[in-house]
């Protein structure tokens, strides 16, 4: 079979040099066997596999064998192919653990729903010869929003007044994108800092990875809204603050002593939500929006609209100040 792949690569991408020539796969069921140098053929299109995708956290690489980084041989463009992998696992959210399901069908459906809506990653799905649904996704060239924000080399006060209003304007649009999903009875399911990217060139914010789903509860959008809130807390603070990193950020022991249980995240017990105690120039109104995600909260946002109704005026206020 190697010879066949070699011929295919030569015909479609003559400039590509490849150390190994693998097999052609029209059935992706055994995704563990598909690796570097193999070609996945779907719908008469050919995707040369470069490597398995990996998730990196705390310096550890966790390979995702069902996600392949590829080159689309017909165009030379990079693509990510997500193959069928059903999984149920317990997702840890601070002190809570909830059953979470990975659903290829859900992500494929959302890719259709958000076609040409560039607030989301773009792609489409096709079936392989065995009927496995394969998601073919365009690679976003860009940077994680949180990395961009964290790496801005300005003091917080300058960041808050000069950078944050524009960031929040775009974040608002990202929230509206999530509302669009909710309006269509869909959820993102995995809103976290590394799933919102800034695209190089356009500067557009784009959501990625929406294959997580959950057992329905009375408020199916709660998880997404909490994710948006946690992201907002990061953006306003320019980073995550905990009692243990305050000293390294130049805050005095007196500042640290002023915090009580109500000032921390409802889910992540060590994360400071009451940022106004650190940065008194944060307007009360904006801080109150943050505090809806704190231990002190008694009333919760049930929809993105409720969240935005309180957040939007705050952006105007920061701009004016």
């Amino acid at each position: 079979m190697s010879h066949e792949v070699k011929e295919l690569v030569k015909r479609l991408r003559p400039s590509l040099s490849l150390g190994e020539y693998g097999k052609i796969f029209t059935d992706t069921t055994s995704y563990m066997n598909i690796s570097y140098g193999d070609v996945i053929e779907i719908d008469n299109q050919h995707y040369l596999v470069l490597r398995d995708e990996a998730e990196r956290s705390f310096g550890i690489e966790d390979p995702k064998y069902w996600v392949k980084r590829c080159i689309h041989l017909e165009t030379g463009e990079r693509r990510i192919l997500k193959l069928v992998f059903h999984e149920k696992f317990m997702l840890k959210l601070g002190s809570l653990e909830i059953p979470c399901y990975r659903s290829p069908e859900k992500e494929a459906r959302i890719l259709d729903l958000v076609r040409d809506d560039l607030r989301f990653m773009q792609g489409f799905s096709r079936f392989d010869k065995k009927g496995n649904i394969v998601r073919i996704i365009q690679v976003i060239k860009g940077k994680r929003l949180d990395h961009h924000v964290f790496e801005l080399e300005v003091p917080h006060r300058d960041y808050f007044h000069e950078h944050l209003p524009a960031i929040l304007e775009k974040f608002l649009d990202s929230c509206l994108a999530i509302r669009y999903l909710h309006d269509h009875q869909e959820i993102h399911g995995d809103i976290r800092r590394d799933h919102l990217w800034i695209e190089h060139g356009s500067g557009r914010y784009r959501w990625i990875d929406f294959d997580y789903t959950y057992e329905f509860e009375e408020n199916p959008f709660g998880l997404d809204i909490f994710g948006l809130g946690s992201l907002l807390i990061f953006l306003v603070g320019k980073q995550i603050y905990t009692l243990s990193n305050l000293a390294s950020q130049g805050f005095s022991p007196d500042t640290a002593a002023a915090f009580n249980q109500g000032d921390f995240s409802l889910l992540y017990k060590n994360r400071i939500v009451n940022l106004r105690k650190l940065f008194p120039y944060i307007p009360e109104k904006l801080n109150l929006v943050l505090m809806h995600f704190s231990n002190r909260a008694e009333i919760f946002y049930e929809s993105v609209d409720e969240f935005l109704a309180e957040l939007e005026p705050c952006i105007k206020e920061i701009k004016k100040s």
Binding site: G94, S95, L96, I98, E218, G222, L266, L267, F293, F300
Partner: peptide, 14 residues
């Protein structure tokens, strides 16, 4: 708990 109510909602409260 409060966190559960935020994330999942509550039939009786609603």
């Amino acid at each position: 708990s409060k966190a559960e109510e935020f994330l999942f909602g509550s039939v009786s409260n609603k």
